[in-house]
Design a protein around this nucleic acid. Structure first.
Lengths: 218, 218
DNA sequence: ACCTGAACACCGTTCAAGT
DNA sequence: ACCTGAACACCGTTCAAGT
């Protein structure tokens, strides 16, 4: 599918490796990303990455940082009031996570480690500041909003990677795809709402959660 | 530390194995859980587990199901109005996740597969039903609340496993433990609020997020 | 029926050797 | 300075053999 496989001969650098791992994550959403596979895509030995990253975790974090930078860059093109701009940013985080699930699935960890992560924090703080918040309420709102967005995006990405049910079949991401083999007669409400529960869409919940948190901010 | 290590000689069953993996998760929060390690704790060969679980994923899911059942059982002892009972349940999910981080870190996936998972769903639906919700609003509120609780609990557990900063040093779980080596002068708000951001506690955010979502329910 | 232990395929990581 | 390839330690999983 990809035009560029095994044809890289230029000298490697961190940015090229991050490019390659994100493309791999995009092209093979269900596959586990391995140094061997990454080396093949770059036309390079599997161990060549160690010249540029201390270990796989550092590479993964760099890729997450790039995703964060992309989300900010995209959000900065959006105009509107503080809430529209913030919602656009948070939505972009979820979209990028679902487009690179095997990377984003690792991203529930909140520590910012690179400029992209910090730029994301700055963007959220700036929008909430536009909304008139400052001091402790600003910090609280930041934590609630970005915590929700990152944790939820990572959870949706994990659902895609696990690939249960019909995850991402049509762009919708199922919240619940099965009740296993549990006899639902013992659980009357689950049983009554079974169909409705199975048709919950992850992105819908994501938007609703953000709306609820931002409502309580305003 | 543990009194019972390598002294199990009774026949294995699924429940015993789940007991052992949860105890391991409790005793060694930072260690990766391996079949070999689990076999040692049970006094059994590493491959003996395959007689009882199809693979490691199925075992992990069974352990998560047990945690879910424990959270419901504990919540059922709490009295009060719908909100107090629901908040007690959601808080218990987070606490149990932090007590068994290496298991809970896998749990951002929302699919319920066992009776414990379904009992958790039933409990949340029942409390929201007590609050007067029904139909589509009930399902939406369920999704927002349980999605937040599960994703956020898993993210906090991952933070403990990754063990960055002083995670779980004193029971508090840091939201952000570092800004890496990023020069914060380019990010004025992050820079201004640096100390406040670093002192955010995960459980505080968790409570605040749930409060915000439940406010919008009521 | 249940458990053991050898074996396999894989993976991250290290390191001496190449260019 | 950067990359290769052999080697190591590990891990999940399978399967024939034991009891």
């Amino acid at each position: 599918m990809a035009a560029k496989t095994g044809n890289r001969r230029a000298r490697l650098d961190r940015s090229m490796i991050v490019d390659a791992i994100l493309q791999l994550a995009r092209d093979e959403p269900r596959a586990r990303i391995t140094f061997k596979r990454l080396g093949q895509a770059l036309g390079v030995d599997a161990t060549a990455m160690y010249r540029h990253f201390r270990n796989k975790d550092e590479l993964t974090r760099a890729a997450l940082d790039r995703l964060s930078a992309m989300a900010v860059a995209d959000a900065e093109t959006v105009t509107g009031d503080w809430r529209e701009r913030l919602e656009a940013h948070l939505l972009r985080i979820a979209e990028l996570s679902l487009e690179h699930p095997s990377i984003a699935a690792e991203g529930a960890i909140l520590d910012p480690v690179g400029p992209g992560d910090v730029a994301g924090d700055e963007f959220v703080l700036a929008r909430l500041s536009d909304a008139g918040l400052a001091g402790a309420p600003l910090v609280r709102a930041y934590a609630a909003v970005s915590g929700f967005a990152l944790a939820q995006s990572a959870a949706m990405a994990q659902e895609v990677v696990a690939g249960r049910g019909a995850a991402a079949r049509d762009g919708s991401i199922p919240w619940i795809s099965t009740f296993g083999s549990v006899d639902l007669t013992d659980y009357p409400l689950v049983n009554e709402y079974r169909e409705a529960l199975l048709s919950i869409d992850g992105m819908t919940v994501y938007r609703a959660g953000i709306a609820a948190i931002l409502d309580s901010v305003a």
